[in-house]
Design a protein around this nucleic acid. Structure first.
Length: 719
DNA sequence: AGCATTACCATTTTT
DNA sequence: TGGTAATGCT
């Protein structure tokens, strides 16, 4: 029997043993959130709740699997009863239901498009409309995709999104709206859904069919939603839709760790949860089991300046431990060598998989990757190129998709394009013919392109005989083999190896459909759990929910972290701060913050001076050791921790915590009547966007072309 | 129509 | 740096 009282602290115990009624668990970083959910899951099963009545929505499928696995272990079962829990991402969950109940308006078998497919479809629409032809400044397909998706996720019109975050494209609002409409119609016509559609179509389905809704409400009588702070508006509505009635809904999250606003996540969801489900019990997990005191002190300080709705005071019993380091290399290049030598040093104490290098954006790790490669240190990278984006994997998956759904347009285009001599135009013609069952066109094409004939024959053959997912995958790979060797003469063995892994993955499925949707919706490379122990390189976003003994955070300079692309609005700056918080709270024992003095800048012709990130600059000096790299490569401890900056406009006060009074009050940035948003003008830097009021008399302003500056109010003309 | 070459541009984070 | 779109050649 499990002794819940002994294994959990009081707050965790309450969360794990209260099974009925709505509950909101505010789980601080490292506060044993997963443990709590796992014990709750085990408890539910012990109380006789059928696994099939439980819905566990998580941020990744991996997270759901891990929780189920651990709960089963706790119960001394192998998968067993816990295995029947429906769990995964909102998107995967939505698709699993949509596959069974096709929504109105779609003809034929549904297919999910990954982002590449969606971009292709969008480009097709753009070209069909003839928009942006010869206009150099017309937004690129990917930009358009991002804008449309953002509008969708935030549930705003395209015009609104442009007005709010891409003002320079405002004149294209009409064109973009037309593209959006065309794209929408295109998807309907070809039974295609992109990621966003999955959520909205599920909502539409449940709203339009009361019986179905009643069925699923009864089916999922217990709902748990992880990372609730990163849900968007539709996701919250889906939870309400499925949860009202029984009201057995537990949301878990931390408003201080909300980092997905850019894709429509709405922190307000977690704040509003108690309103959505009246009578919600709120539980705060405040004991941190992860980090040593010095690390926790630093991470708490990052949040001191932030407006926070659910105030928590995280504490730890892990006294002692090393003080975090701020390391200042001469440049981003020497930063890479400093990082690698630090890693070598750490490898004497920790195994490789206990060490991570984190960064704001994928490209920032390039230098480090090279250095590690030189030294022969193994690493795995998260947040870069995805496994299923690799061309050969997409090729093979396209064949499989066509076996399942012969009229899957993106897959058909991909397959046909593989035949030499067939391009975009011919593809569409052939697809059209296939759709209309126009045999003559296809026959002619097959006569002209024998390879196409082979492909179609194979598809027909595979469709005729029922095969397991693994068998099907194997058969397709065999068929694809000659083309693999022809297309990738230099590195086809490596790719072949990757395809063998695909067969392995397929072997764990009974249903091809399910396999395809999982592969489309999630990255199996992160799933598979690399068996080799290696140092981790990861974007901060991909590091969410993970932890390491030692964490090195690089490129902590203005324009990189915070990213210069994320400073359009005051809220954006706060999101960057939370990102910084998430990054630093990944560390158990050792935390190093790298602040290069110069960074490479193409436009500036080589290395240009960089300003330390405000997130480092604003840290009280006693919370870290400050080390600076000398020209000789040695390090000098800086005792006087007064911050040094390059910016002429820097007007900061003394380092000993000047300007550290916490912002008070709610709202965007309450500060006693001073404007915390809007625009202002400076004699030298021109017009800029006010990001933050820095008490008592300064503002943090983003000047286009100059970046982020902190300036005394007297030098600014407010608008 | 397809395909290779060139020129240019913009550059986050992810389901 | 890379990927993408316009250009020119087959």
């Amino acid at each position: 029997m499990i002794d819940y009282k002994k294994e959990l602290n009081a707050a965790q115990y309450e969360a794990a043993t209260t099974l009925e009624g709505p509950m909101l668990v505010i789980a601080g970083a490292g506060s044993g959130k997963t443990r709590t959910v796992v014990y709750r899951l085990a408890n539910m099963v012990q109380q006789g709740i059928a696994a099939s009545n439980i819905l566990l929505l998580t941020f990744t499928r991996k997270a759901a699997q891990e929780m189920q696995h651990r709960a089963a272990q706790l119960l001394g079962q192998s998968a067993g009863m816990v295995g029947g829990v429906q769990g995964g991402t909102f998107h995967a969950f939505a698709y699993s239901i949509l596959r069974m109940h096709k929504p109105q308006g779609y003809e034929g078998d549904l297919s999910v498009m990954d982002s590449a497919d969606a971009a292709g479809a969008l480009k097709h629409c753009k070209d069909t409309l003839g928009l942006g032809k010869g206009d150099r400044s017309f937004p690129k397909t990917q930009t358009v995709m991002g804008l449309l998706s953002k509008a969708r996720n935030k549930e705003l019109t395209v015009e609104d999104v442009l007005r709010r975050e891409a003002f320079h494209l405002a004149s294209y609002a009409g064109d973009l709206t037309r593209i959006s409409d065309t794209y929408r119609a295109f998807k309907r016509r070809h039974a295609l859904m992109d990621y966003d559609d999955l959520l909205f179509e599920l909502e539409r389905l449940l709203q339009s069919d009361a019986d179905l809704l009643a069925y699923y409400r009864d089916r999922f009588r217990y709902i748990m939603v992880d990372e609730f702070q990163d849900t968007n508006l539709v996701q919250a509505r889906l939870v309400r839709l499925l949860g009202s009635g029984h009201n057995n809904v537990m949301a878990v999250g931390d408003d201080a760790q909300s980092i997905y606003a850019f894709r429509g996540a709405n922190v307000q969801n977690i704040l509003d949860f108690p309103d959505m489900f009246p009578g919600t019990r709120i539980i705060k997990l405040e004991e941190n089991y992860r980090s040593v005191q010095p690390v926790l002190d630093l991470t708490n300080a990052i949040l001191d300046d932030a407006p926070q709705a659910f105030r928590k005071k995280l504490f730890t019993r892990r006294e002692g431990g090393p003080t975090p380091h701020v390391l200042r290399p001469l440049s981003d290049l020497t930063q890479a060598s400093m990082v690698t030598s630090k890693i070598t040093e750490l490898l004497r104490t920790y195994p490789p998989d206990e060490i991570a290098v984190l960064f704001r954006a994928g490209y920032q790790s390039y230098h480090v990757e090279m250095q590690l490669g030189k030294l022969g240190v193994k690493f795995k990278k998260y947040g870069g190129v995805r496994y299923s984006d690799a061309a050969h994997v997409k090729d093979v998956l396209s064949y499989i998709r066509l076996v399942v759904n012969p009229l899957d347009l993106p897959a058909f285009q991909r397959m046909a394009s593989l035949v030499k001599g067939i391009g975009a135009k011919t593809c569409l013609k052939l697809y059209d013919a296939a759709q209309k069952a126009d045999r003559s066109v296809l026959k002619k094409a097959c006569a002209r392109f024998p390879d196409l004939q082979h492909d179609l024959d194979m598809l027909d053959a595979l469709r005729a005989k029922p095969l397991t997912p693994a068998g099907l995958t194997q058969a397709v790979i065999e068929h694809y083999q000659p083309r693999l060797e022809a297309n990738y003469p230099d590195d086809y063995p490596r790719r072949q190896h990757g395809l063998e892994q695909l067969v392995q993955i397929a072997a764990s499925y009974n249903d091809v459909d399910l396999m395809l949707s999982d592969l489309c919706l999630e990255d199996p490379a992160t799933d598979k759990g690399e068996d080799i122990s290696a140092v981790t390189l990861s974007t901060v976003h991909s590091a969410k929910g993970l932890e390491w003994s030692a964490v090195l955070l690089i490129d902590l300079v203005e324009d990189r972290f915070p990213s210069r692309h994320a400073l359009n609005k005051a809220e954006d700056f706060e999101e960057e701060r939370r990102l910084m918080y998430v990054a630093c709270t990944r560390a158990r024992d050792y935390l190093a913050l790298f602040v290069p003095a110069t960074i490479y800048d193409r436009s500036g012709g080589g290395n240009t001076p960089a300003n330390p990130s405000p997130f480092v600059r604003d840290l009280p000096a006693h919370l870290y050791e400050d080390w600076r790299e000398n020209f000789t490569g040695t390090l000098t401890r800086r005792q006087d921790a007064r911050p040094v900056t390059v910016s002429a406009a820097r007007t900061s006060g003394p380092a000993s915590g000047g300007g550290r009074q916490a912002e008070q009050g709610g709202g965007a940035l309450g500060n006693g009547g001073r404007p915390a948003s809007g625009y202002c003008t400076h004699k030298i830097f021109g017009r800029g966007k006010i990001i933050q009021h820095v008490p008592p008399d300064k503002y943090r302003v983003n000047f286009p072309g100059f970046g982020l500056k902190v300036i005394m109010a007297q030098y600014l003309t407010l608008e």
